[in-house]
Amino acid sequence: MREVVAEVEQPVMLYSVGKDSAVMLHLAKKAFYPSVPPFPLMHVDTTWKFREMIEFRDRMASDTGMELIVHINEEGVRQGVGPFTHGSALHTDIMKTQALKQALDKYRFDAAFGGARRDEEKSRAKERIFSFRSEQHRWDPKNQRPEPWSLYNARKQPKESIRVFPLSNWTELDIWQYIYLENIPIVPLYFAAERPVVERDGALIMVDDERMPLRDNEVPRQEMVRFRTLGCYPLTGAIRSSATDLPGIIQEMLLTTQSERQGRVIDHDASASMEKKKQEGYF
């Protein structure tokens, strides 16, 4: 993070409000203390995030004293794009991928920190910590810079930008363990609680607001559930759980037989789908 701040002009931290973002933000505070991290936080809001995420986000930004930029793809909003009406793929592309590109262009950020980890997904395993994007925000996996030792080359052409992944070498267990050890605040949705859910296409979807159209036979019922990852509420499946504290969460995570991204609807296409999305500019 210090390398980025020293070598680029306009860094920003992409803050997705999830647990990885929480750890990344905590590390930023440490890296620059007693200074406030010298870059803003940016949240790309699809307008379909859990309400608790938005409350938590605003509180965190105000606690750290960092500037918070919230970007929404207004064009998408005008067209009424949403997961229920347009499907998950189109919604994610317009409200997340395109919105991110818009925001980076608008504010001319030339480096953006992201919380992605190499253990999440196979194509991430080969991505560099400093990962370059063309003017069109495309990733070229065949043309990556070697990163020997911890010497990072942050030089770029005028319109290029960098995605920087400080948590590349962390595992999901490392993240939870660090949150536990350092007592890092996270969104309460990670802890089990009684929440209104319906079971739809094999996933437990929380009815977070009145925009969710219920099917004929669907009646929301209160269940003890929590979330392993957080995103748009209609696209994020909950798991039944009684884990109300961190050791409980970690215990469940260690005993589960499903990978972390399994709860995400967008990964369920062909197995190389993430790589394709990334070439198109998905973070």
């Binding site: 196979k122 194509s123 395993a125 080969k126 996996p141 065949k142 190389a272 790589e275 394709k276």
Partner: peptide, 8 residues
Amino acid sequence: VDGLAAER
């Protein structure tokens, strides 16, 4: 472990 599509 063979990650990228081209490699596979």
